[in-house]
Write a protein that binds this DNA or RNA. Structure first.
Lengths: 148, 148
DNA sequence: CAAGATTGAACGTTCAATCTTC
DNA sequence: GAAGATTGAACGTTCAATCTTG
């Protein structure tokens, strides 16, 4: 097993970073411009929506790949805007849920199609079915290697 | 042309984000722990090294995918640590170069093998040659679509 | 008046410390 | 004493405004 990547793999890692930066910058700018919604807020709304409306702070932090204090403060701000609220966890006095409010659900509903069109335009439309299958195979290995 | 991505492509985009977050978090932690070097600083040192030791602020900002004011302040901090210095551009009185110092070059030299081992461990070793070829083909299309 | 670069002020993130509950 | 969550203080990022030169 090599201890260092060959030049192709190093170049691939750079392309990966470059594509990530370019695409996320555009998706974030679009949500901000069209819905006044930071991408990180949209991400929280999405995860809560998929979880049926509520997640514990810890789980939500993991789901959105955020630091726990950063998420705590982000939820403060979103709560101040009426998009989520906190609720105690019934059987664990330490825990807090973040819960989608009606306004949060509504903003999520209005923002998801816009964001998905963005993902189509900036990412998905450039890939053939063969590309998609190959990348999913490769990324699945990477994601699974980092689950440990 | 579809206006929204199919579920496979949406899932692929999520895997992409998840892999990116997991890998960059580990690479950043390793450079910080072993060399007291933030990943963004390493990135600046690397780009300057590849450019022969100097780049204009604007070019450097583009190369590292950073906002120009953020880069300006990052170069302030790196200058305070003696890793880079600024120099006037001879034939354009508005311009500034960021220039690698001896200490910056030395830290780059000591950090590159560590970082490349990290890229191998967290990214490259998980991919077959087939994966690499397929991803490079797909990512090249994405990167080129965002060059405009 | 546009381009390169920096800056003030507001904002977001992070680490370590803290609080509460298990 | 460890886990879930929040907080103070330090730090990093961003936007718009500014300065200087082309």
């Amino acid at each position: 097993m090599a201890t260092r990547p060959d030049p192709d793999r190093l170049a691939l890692w750079r392309s990966f970073l470059e594509a990530h930066a370019a695409i996320t910058t555009k998706l974030a700018a679009e949500l901000q411009a069209e819905r006044q919604l930071p991408l990180a807020w949209f991400d929280v709304l999405t995860r809560l929506g998929e979880a049926g409306g509520r997640l514990r702070m810890r789980e939500l932090a993991v789901a959105v790949s955020a630091n726990k204090s950063s998420l705590s403060r982000q939820v403060d701000r979103m709560e101040a805007e009426g998009l989520v609220r906190r609720e105690d966890v019934a059987d664990d006095g330490r825990g807090q849920f973040a819960v989608l409010t009606k306004a949060g659900r509504e903003l999520l509903r209005r923002s998801t199609p816009l964001h998905q069109r963005g993902v189509q335009r900036e990412f998905a439309q450039h890939l053939t079915d063969t590309d998609v299958a190959a990348m999913q195979r490769a990324l699945a290995k990477l994601v699974s290697a980092h689950k440990d």
